[in-house]
C-alpha cells in the first residue's frame, strides 16, 4: 500500500488517458499509485462508470485518490462512480476542477511529495483559469 495520494485520469479518449498517464509516470515514476481509463462501455469515445471504479481501485491509497477529468460526461460519471464506492472510501476520493493533462502532472508531482489529498487537489486546481 502506497503512502502517497493516488491519481486517476479519466478522458473520453483511451489514447488521451494513456498518454497523460505516461507523462505522469515520466514525471514521478512509480511513486504515485496511478489509474486511468478512457472510452465508453462500447469502446467508442466517452466514459464508463465501471471503468472509472476499476481505475480508482488500481490507484487506491488510504490517503485518498484525486481524479482528473476532461469534459462534462467524465465529471458526471466520475461523481457517480464515487457514489457507488463502499461508503468508507467515498469521502477520500475527489474530482479536481482542472485541465486533465496539466492537472494530472501537477497533482501527481504534489502527491509524490507526500502531500495530503486536499493539497493535491489545490495544486491541480490552481491551474484553472479564474
Amino acid at each position: 500500500m502506497s503512502e502517497n495520494v493516488g491519481i486517476v485520469i479519466v478522458s473520453h479518449s483511451a489514447d488521451v488517458a494513456r498518454g497523460t498517464a505516461l507523462m505522469v509516470e515520466q514525471m514521478v515514476g512509480r511513486e504515485v499509485p496511478l489509474g486511468w481509463c478512457g472510452g465508453d462501455p462500447g469502446g467508442g469515445l466517452g466514459t464508463s462508470v465501471e471503468a472509472i471504479m476499476a481505475a480508482i481501485e488500481r490507484a487506491w491509497s488510504e490517503r485518498g485518490v484525486a481524479i482528473l477529468v476532461d469534459l462534462g460526461g467524465a465529471e458526471t460519471n466520475s461523481e457517480m462512480a464515487i457514489e457507488m464506492l463502499p461508503e468508507e472510501r467515498r469521502a477520500r476520493v475527489v474530482v479536481c476542477n482542472a485541465p486533465v493533462v496539466e492537472g494530472a502532472v501537477m497533482a501527481a508531482t504534489e502527491a509524490a511529495s507526500g502531500a495530503s489529498l486536499e493539497a493535491v487537489r489545490q495544486t491541480a486546481e490552481e491551474l484553472t483559469p479564474v
Binding site: 465508453d40 462501455p41 462500447g42 467508442g44 466517452g46 466514459t47 464508463s48 462508470v49 465501471e50 462534462g72 460526461g73 458526471t76 460519471n77 461523481e79 457517480m80 457507488m84
Partner: peptide
C-alpha cells in the same frame, strides 16, 4: 443505465 450508457446521460437517467 449508469453502467452501460457511457455519456453524462447515464448517471442522469440512472439517478
Amino acid at each position: 443505465l449508469v453502467m452501460k450508457v457511457g455519456g453524462a446521460s447515464g448517471p442522469l437517467y440512472g439517478t
